[in-house]
Amino acid sequence: MKPDKEILIKKWLNDELSPEEFEMFKKLDKYEEYIKISDRAKHFKAPHYNQKVEFEKLNFATSSQKKSSNLKVFKYVAAVAAIAIIAFTLFQTLNTTTNLQSFATSTAKTKSVQLPDQSKVSLNANSNLTYNKDEWYKERQLQLNGEALFKVKKGQKFVVNTAYANVEVLGTVFNVKSRDYIFEVSCFEGSVKVYLKGQSYVLKPKDNLVIDHENILITQFSSAQPDWKTNKTIIDSKSLDIVLKEFQNYYDVNFDASNIDTSTIYSGSFSHNDLKIALNSITLPLGYTYTKQGNTIILSNQ
């Protein structure tokens, strides 16, 4: 009987060939090729698997769950951790009322503030901005004392509270100036609602609201950004005492104006970068001169 080729090969592959069958297998025409394939297969051997090392690794990983005593300890640790977390959250919630964020600038300094909703605020000199961080997502509300430019992300209403009025918007760019001697709101984009003395005023882009001698005036302007962002102050028909107060936001000086009439109306502008030029741009048109003594500027008639 002559077993066929396939059976011979299969038997060879399982080391089952009898010596006679092996002789027959050797006579197959592809015999050498098969032997070579089988032999060279050993070069593809899998990398050594170190049973002991691998088990050690595994042991390490399983040991944490292994012992019940460990589990008990874990339970206590978990309980303590849970109490700590609860206490912390309670503390946080009770603490919300005092979680205020405050930003302040001194004379001649400005500051950029990023609010939690990505709205941006540029704070002008001598200004103060406060908001409640925890309440922010319920109600976008801030307190402003001074001057700031707001770029508000679209969203729920955004309210700027000042000593004069509440300025309310949805998403827009606007400037609020709220100082003890002046209140002014300028709208650059979108629309702004100003609540003032029980009345509301809606400002469209390029509208400017100003309180002038107890009167509320809405005028148009043409600049693309507030004057202070270009490092100067533009003044349109204001009495000199207001101008001097405004001046002191940008320069650390005192004025002695006892020799002149501070109710003189001034229109013009002054730079925030150079004290000498700024003083000249105010005094020259009005026909005044100044002398400087330390930090004090004495104004006098020519």
Partner: peptide
């Protein structure tokens, strides 16, 4: 531990020969 002794190497070799090295046969065994 006995199960590991008995099967880990075969399992490793099987995964290695089947899928090759790039899928980290040792990790798969672990």
């Amino acid at each position: 531990s006995k199960l590991h002794d008995k099967h880990a190497k075969d399992l490793h070799d099987f995964i290695y020969y089947k899928f090759g090295e790039q899928f980290n046969p040792k990790d798969k065994v672990q």
